[in-house]
């Protein structure tokens, strides 16, 4: 783009970002965060709000911080907490699905390093539409204190992709 006029360069950039935006417009991620760990603690959870333009499902996640990332669901039954890996989380079109304490979360297992408050954990989310087409989405999730509540009082920014 070195030969372009400034206006042309802006137009070219806008076109490029427009293409990126449409390619990833299926799912919007908001309020992604990861719960901090203490040294030697080997697992923690990531939470976020997902909204899909079309019916899709979250089928997996990965992160450079650990080779083992699973999508889990927590359920309380008769006072007993159970946590299980789920094959997918359905994202009905236009409906915000929350991955939050008390429900679904992305589980980061087998951590080799402490996840510290203030750090950012990159997450790659994989979605599968009804047509079987897969789409990936990169999220940078800030790490919140270990004692963070399910619903923070203040907004912590959002990640649109």
């Amino acid at each position: 783009m070195t030969n372009m006029t400034p206006i042309a360069r802006i137009l070219a950039l806008s076109a490029a970002s427009f293409l990126v935006a449409t390619a990833h417009a299926q799912v919007t991620v908001k309020e992604a965060w990861v719960r901090a760990t203490v040294p030697q603690q080997q697992a923690t959870g990531a939470f976020m709000q997902l909204n899909a333009a079309k019916d899709t499902k979250l089928i997996s996640a990965s992160s450079p911080v650990t080779p083992i990332v699973e999508v889990h669901e927590m359920a309380m039954q008769d006072g007993v907490m159970r946590m299980r890996q789920v094959p997918s989380v359905a994202l009905p079109a236009g409906k915000t699905v929350e991955l939050k304490p008390g429900g679904y979360h992305v589980m980061l297992l087998d951590l080799k390093q402490q996840v510290k408050e203030g750090d950012t954990v990159p997450l790659t989310l994989v979605f599968e539409g009804q047509d079987g087409k897969r789409e990936t989405l990169e999220v940078k999730a800030p790490v919140r204190a270990l004692n963070s509540a399910a619903k923070p009082a203040a907004a912590h920014g959002e990640h649109k992709h």
Binding site: A43, G45, M74
Partner: peptide, 16 residues
Amino acid sequence: FTQCPDVCPTALLRAA
């Protein structure tokens, strides 16, 4: 257990 991402931090947060 400390690897609990959900119920245990919530219970300890409530205790605090």
